[in-house]
Simulated assay, not measured.
Amino acid sequence: MSVQTPTTLRPPLHRVSRTAIWYWTVRACLGWLVFIGGQVAWMVADGGDQRTLRISALGFTAVLAAAHLIVMPRWRYHVHRWETTPEAVYTLSGWFKQEWRIAPVSRIQTVDSERGPLEQLFKLADVTVTTASAAGPIKIGGLDRATADRIVHELTASAQATAGDAT
């Protein structure tokens, strides 16, 4: 009879790809461009008496966007971590709201890899580990493609080799 040591919540060892910093920056920049574009369109379409106020609001938005684009991606890079072991999958993610997650391999139901158009451009991929947890799947984002493929292969093999029904 083997004694199983409990899986503990601890900081994962691996960082995501450094390229994720650029991916998060570009993704956030696209959102800010839409917002700023709306402000500019409103200012041009309604040229009334409030022009100074609208220009000030646009300037404030530009400063806020620049601060967000400088701080957020680097902060996320320093927080986001992941690790897989034969016993569990560990993740730490977020930037304002940070979340530590752990999933025992025996609870894994599916392992998926996803690459959106922007992620493909940056040669990145996400891995989603679905378990029976009410908290939802565990996502490891910002991985380079080779690492994501390796994780999917390893976790799938580990889950198949682990006794249990993953519920």
Rank of each mutant, 00 (worst) to 15 (best):
Y23R: 02
T110Y: 08
L13E: 15
A67G: 08
W32Q: 08
R74P: 04
Q39A: 06
T84D: 10
I102V: 14
K123F: 06
K97P: 00
G59A: 12
R27Q: 15
L92F: 09
T85M: 13
P104W: 01
Q120E: 10
R74V: 09
F96M: 12
R27T: 13
A65N: 04
R27S: 15
S56A: 14
W82L: 00
S93M: 01
G47A: 13
H80T: 05
R15K: 11
D126F: 01
W24F: 12
I102E: 06
A88P: 01
R27V: 11
Q109F: 05
Q50M: 09
T61H: 03
R76A: 08
R51M: 12
G94I: 04
A125F: 02
T19N: 08
Y77G: 00
H68S: 12
A62H: 03
R81V: 03
V79L: 10
K97I: 13
S17A: 14
G31N: 11
S113K: 06
L58D: 04
P12Q: 08
L33E: 12
V63A: 12
A28T: 14
T25A: 11
F96G: 03
L9N: 15
I36N: 02
E114P: 00
V105Q: 03
Q39H: 08
L9S: 14
L13Y: 09
R74S: 04
G38S: 04
T52P: 01
F96N: 14
R27E: 15
M43Q: 13
A67K: 03
F96C: 07
G94P: 07
W22V: 06
E99Q: 14
W100H: 13
V71D: 08
F35R: 12
A28C: 08
S17F: 10
W82Q: 03
I55T: 13
A28P: 03
E87A: 11
W24C: 04
V63C: 08
Y90T: 00
T52K: 03
Q50P: 00
V111R: 02
